[in-house]
Amino acid sequence: MSRRDKWKSARDAMMAPLGKTKGVKTRESVPEVCCGKCEMWFENAYSSEGRGTCRVLKMGSEIHSDKPTYVLEGDAGLISYFNMDASHCSYFSKMELIDTDGTECSDPLFRRALRQMKKFNE
């Protein structure tokens, strides 16, 4: 795979949700087990709408099917979103949400206070 193609798949994963009609329903849906609640998931600092990177899995991994594929070597981490289903991922490790209101910022293990995550704080 050429350098360009390799990074193109990462770029596409980053831009994939754009240009798709999602409506309210898709945007409001947050599974009980999701990347946003996993301590292996690191929220992206460039954008704050809930995109992030996995600290363990690399690009090429696929965690949505019953038989997930895990890629552990590579240049780029797996890009995923806070509300992505992680129930099939064996690397999922639930974390405590310590920055639940978002007033304090930039702790090493923090989560931005996305509105849809509020239900997990109650």
């Binding site: 350098r3 360009r4 990074w7 990462a10 770029r11 980053m14 240009g19 600092a45 460039y46």
Partner: peptide, 19 residues
């Protein structure tokens, strides 16, 4: 969104990593 399609994909991903 339009710019991200024109950028070199490696640059786009690294730039938007936020690091």
């Amino acid at each position: 969104d339009k710019l991200a399609r024109v950028l070199d994909p490696e640059d786009a991903v690294k730039f938007m990593s936020g690091a």
